[in-house]
Amino acid sequence: MAKYLLLKHYRGGPAPTVDWAPMDQWTPDEVDAHLRFMHDFGARLEETGELVDAQALSPDGAFVRYDGEGRPPVTDGPFVETKDLIAGWYIIDVESWDRAVELAGELSAAPGPGGRPIHEWLEVRPFHGVPAAVPE
């Protein structure tokens, strides 16, 4: 088994295939269908024993860095509209890269306006695992 991060973005990544309106412009039923899909996706991963963690992030926040001895850290925020912005993640523990890609494909098919799949780009990233007991 290997762990992968499925990263959702508010913005950033390759150009979207379909440029959907923001969710607050959808109908309440479309919002519901989308939220139900996300919930069910997590529940299904739990059932198959592949879910490690799922979290959603607020778009608020800032960049922070050290600014030298005795000085308070420098913050840079809120985030600029053009920059890549992470929305949340699923961490999965699966048999293979192919399985991770398959699951990301399913997640990307979450319904949007008119119930059509949103084709959202998801970033799939392998974790550096722990060293094996038997080195190859």
Binding site: M23, D24, W26, P28, E30, V31
Partner: peptide, 10 residues
């Protein structure tokens, strides 16, 4: 809150 926004916008 998102549902409330969607309700008013539609």
């Amino acid at each position: 809150l998102m549902r409330q926004a969607a309700r008013l916008n539609s």
